[in-house]
Simulated scan of single mutants.
Amino acid sequence: MRKLVYYIATTVDGFIAGPDGADPTGPGGFWPIPEDYLRHLIAEYPETLPGPARQAFGIDGEGARFDTMLEGRHTYEIGLKAGLTDAYPHLRHLVFSRTMRESPDPAVELVSTDPVATARELKRHDGKDIWVIGGGALAGALYDEIDQLIVKLAPLTIGTGIPLFGREAVFAPRTWNLVSHTVLDSGAIFLTYDRSA
């Protein structure tokens, strides 16, 4: 069965964005993107790069890990503000929103129903794994359904911001098994955890 994978960058103090939720890697952002980090993304997770970045680096074809992505409206709107109606045209792209009435792009599927039911249905079908891109609120809603965490831990603290599972996450302790890790010279660490049984 396909896995639901929360693949996300976080600070050492557990935040995926600043308090305003803006793109921390965009213009004026605070997130470091060292060269070895970018090389690792291209080599190991090329499908998680947005379409324009893939073009710039000459990346094409299907991804190795994911063929579908789930995104919350706030995260999707970051791409819209940058002029991208579908930042990931190489993936099936579902955006969860109860307020958007029409998709700005014919390839982007708007979902207004329960994300848990949608994730469960997607996991039943054959295919590559399903990437939960964020934001934290969507990841928090899908907390019980997430099978794997791939955490890109930045050597960075910010003090406050959007937590890994959003501001509305419930208290529900869970253990995870570390199945792989990569430490880069720049200090970033890629940690892959499978949910404990």
Rank of each mutant, 00 (worst) to 15 (best):
K3Y: 02
D13M: 02
I16K: 07
G18S: 08
P19A: 14
P19L: 11
D23W: 08
G29S: 07
F30L: 14
P34R: 05
E35L: 08
D36M: 02
Y37A: 06
Y37F: 15
Y37T: 07
Y37Q: 09
R39P: 03
H40S: 03
H40V: 00
E44C: 12
P52Y: 09
A53L: 14
R54T: 05
A56D: 13
G61S: 07
R65V: 11
R65P: 00
F66P: 01
T68W: 04
G72F: 09
H74L: 15
E77P: 11
I78R: 13
G79W: 13
L80C: 07
L91P: 05
L91I: 00
F96V: 04
R98G: 07
P104V: 13
D105G: 11
P106L: 11
A107N: 12
P115A: 05
T118H: 14
A119L: 01
E121M: 10
E121L: 10
K123Y: 13
H125V: 12
D126A: 15
K128V: 00
D129L: 07
V132W: 00
G140Q: 10
D144N: 11
D144F: 05
D147W: 03
L149C: 08
V151R: 06
L156G: 03
G159I: 10
T160I: 00
G161V: 03
P163S: 06
E168D: 13
R174I: 13
T175E: 15
F190R: 02
L191F: 05
Y193E: 03
D194N: 15
S196I: 04
